[in-house]
């Protein structure tokens, strides 16, 4: 159980985390979703006491992290794949961390096997790939067999097999009744792994709800229609909160009317319809809608083809 109350972190005039309150419950995977720079990592660093909050507080299992007698047994954290001395071997790194808590070497070997690091355990960490570094970070997080597991962007750099492994790991840990808090900027990953979502943007909590609820709240049902007479169909459907977008000359996306009503209207008005596909709102769309105003770094629109052509003509 992680409880944050009024948590804030300011760097000079810049606010990274702005008065955030949330609770992460045991027994399920809680996703921490937000665009880059939204404050996910800063929040996680405050949970384990690496950053001191500017105001507010955060506790794990009822106490501040630093006040636990055996912090690694309470919380296992993967905060940054690069939290290892590059000249030390993976085995020695884990052995040094385990020594602080009197965790035996047998457990070190166990987490090495668990994370598939066996073949490279005696090699310098400096030569590790991103994925191997990630596995070592996860091994370190599991070292103390903790009640709470915090993983910051755990699938970064992992191959598909590794991504699936992390997914199973997170779900397995939650099924054992542990608290699992997982951050990502990838909605698709969250849709597959998380039970509950906390969405953060520009340092503020935008949503905190079960994943299904976030999807149904944000995404309205839409229907894709192909017809040879779109303007007639739009006219016939108009009113009653029905909106439509013409995506192609003969393709429409209609919101506010279900497929049955669209088909009935088309029949009544003698409009030919040759495709009628109900579209499920995805988490991705819900997320884009939620975070639209809170993306810190917007990409600029790509130059239009016509503009490029215009430049060409000018020369």
């Amino acid at each position: 159980m992680i409880e944050a109350q009024g948590l804030a972190k300011r760097y000079g005039s810049k606010t990274a985390v702005d008065n955030v309150s949330f609770t992460v419950h045991p027994g399920k995977v809680t996703g921490f979703l937000g665009p880059n720079g939204a404050g996910k990592s800063t929040t996680m660093r405050m949970i384990v006491g690496l950053d001191n909050p500017s105001s507010g507080n955060v506790t794990v299992n009822g106490r501040r992290y630093a006040e636990h007698r055996a912090p690694l047994r309470e919380v296992g954290a993967l905060l940054d794949a690069k939290a290892v001395h590059t000249k030390r071997s993976a085995y020695n790194h884990l052995r040094a961390m385990a020594a602080t808590h009197g965790i035996p070497n047998s457990r070190v070997k166990e987490v090495i096997e668990m994370t598939g690091l066996g073949p490279v355990a005696k090699k310098r960490v400096g030569g590790f790939s991103l994925g191997m570094g990630q596995r070592l970070g996860i091994a370190a997080a599991l070292l103390g067999d903790p009640h709470t597991v915090i993983l910051d962007e755990p699938v970064n750099g992992l191959d598909p097999e590794g991504v699936q492994w992390v997914r199973h790991l997170a779900k397995g840990l939650a099924a054992e009744g542990r608290t699992v808090f997982l951050s990502s900027h990838l909605m698709s990953e969250m849709a597959l792994t998380a039970d509950h979502l906390i969405v953060i943007g520009r340092g503020r909590i935008i949503a905190d709800a079960p994943i299904e609820q976030i999807i149904s709240d944000q995404g309205q049902a839409r229907t894709r229609v192909r017809t040879d007479n779109p303007s007639e169909l739009i006219r016939a459907l108009a009113g009653d909160g029905v909106t439509s977008k013409q995506l192609e000359p003969e393709m429409l996306e209609i919101t506010g009317a279900d497929s049955h009503r669209i088909a009935r209207t088309a029949l009544d008005n003698r409009v030919l319809v040759y495709e009628l596909t109900p579209l499920q709102a995805s988490l991705e769309e819900a997320y884009m809608q939620l975070t639209n105003d809170s993306v810190e770094y917007h990409s600029a629109d790509l130059p239009q083809a016509t503009q490029a052509a215009g430049v060409g003509e000018g020369n």
Binding site: R73, R107, K171, A175, E176
Partner: peptide, 23 residues
């Protein structure tokens, strides 16, 4: 693989916490 992970070894890892000798 997660079933292997799910076998916690509480018995071997639970004990007292951080102390100066261990650090």
């Amino acid at each position: 693989s997660h079933t292997a992970v799910a076998a916690p070894t509480r018995g071997t890892t639970q004990g007292s916490g951080v102390n100066f000798m261990r650090i």
